[in-house]
Nucleic acid binder design. Structure first.
Lengths: 188, 188
DNA sequence: TGTAGCATGTAAGCCGTTACATGATTGA
DNA sequence: TCAATCATGTAACGGCTTACATGCTACA
């Protein structure tokens, strides 16, 4: 069965969003992805959403339905089917989760501190802490929207994990910035 | 000057590794990347290392020299030059660091816990904690190799940051696994 | 003598982004 | 009536990986 090449993880991620039961448009899926997936996977471009939906459809894992209540324009709503749920469970059960990959431009720039000196590095870390705060607030808002709802117990775990991560990150980065303070001046 | 399209970040990352002064082969650069960059950026494939080196060379940011002490085969050693250092500093000074991107398959799978049930999720998290431990040990070894050396003060900061991250991650994940224990059985 | 490691590349192809293009609907 | 949002796609292309290909060197 299913002798095709394995789906890319992002495809499973979108299928996963659909596994919560709603019937969604590509546009709505994008909004979901932007508010949840983006914190620990990616925020796929609209164009990718649509091409993944086409792929999942072709494989018979989701079903498209043209929304009748949408007036003139053609609005397609997608719903996961039994095959899709089976495929997801199969994937979860049989494949080994890969180790997380971090693309951390701030760490990369810290690595190159010798090129710019501690002053400049401290300023950059400061900016990062600020953006962490904003990101954390966004995630908190997401959690507030689902917390307590038993249907979203696992998403809530993930969100709380993210908050803890941001908190830890803030503490560590602040610590590094402080250590940078008392350094031999006039590097570079 | 430099009216070409901006370099991809990975290119700057490799240039950054060369900014520590050594004259390295592509092969050696790959080893460096695997032991340091991979923790917070990527471990580029060999083939990409070589193509990035070609690009950096073409732009005049690094200099290639055929190693005479290498016997029969042609071994190219690359060294950063003044233009390369200037380009790196320019990049660090003028571009805004992007927010980190996390590709976290474990979080993604936790999100889908409703499909497999708490038992299975706990097992997966356990496996993740194990791999975290291994990863942490690797990074600790890297730190041990550079700690105290003033030339690698900033890389040491980055490494310690990574260790803190792994520690925090372990604590959070263990906490989630524990919360999963006392759950209504027979989900799914 | 053979194998693991050192060393360098080319080719094909997927994932994902940006740019481009179009049009309906809602609400100020 | 105008702009923001909803909604759906196509085309081009860059980054990066995997697979393929080659050969030297050190060492057991």
């Amino acid at each position: 069965m299913s002798q095709e090449r394995p789906l890319p993880t992002t495809s499973y991620a979108l299928l996963g969003l659909l596994s919560f039961g709603q019937e969604l448009t590509g546009y709505e899926l994008k909004q979901w992805a932007d508010s949840t997936l983006r914190f620990y996977w990616v925020a796929p471009a609209m164009s990718q959403i649509y091409s993944e939906l086409t792929r999942l459809s072709r494989r018979g894992l989701i079903e498209a339905r043209v929304d009748a209540d949408a007036g003139e324009r053609v609005v397609r709503r997608y719903r996961i089917n039994e095959a899709g749920l089976a495929e997801l469970r199969e994937w979860l059960a049989t494949s080994e989760p890969e180790f997380p990959i971090l693309k951390h431009p701030v760490a990369l720039r810290l690595l190159l501190g010798h090129l710019v000196g501690p002053e400049s590095v401290r300023a950059m870390l400061k900016g990062y802490v600020d953006s962490l705060e904003r990101q954390r607030a966004d995630l908190q808002a997401v959690l507030d929207g689902i917390d307590g709802d038993p249907a979203f117990r696992y998403p809530a775990f993930v969100a709380r994990w993210g908050l803890d991560y941001y908190d830890s990150e803030r503490a560590v980065v602040t610590g590094i910035a402080d250590q940078l303070e008392d350094e031999d001046p006039a590097e570079r």
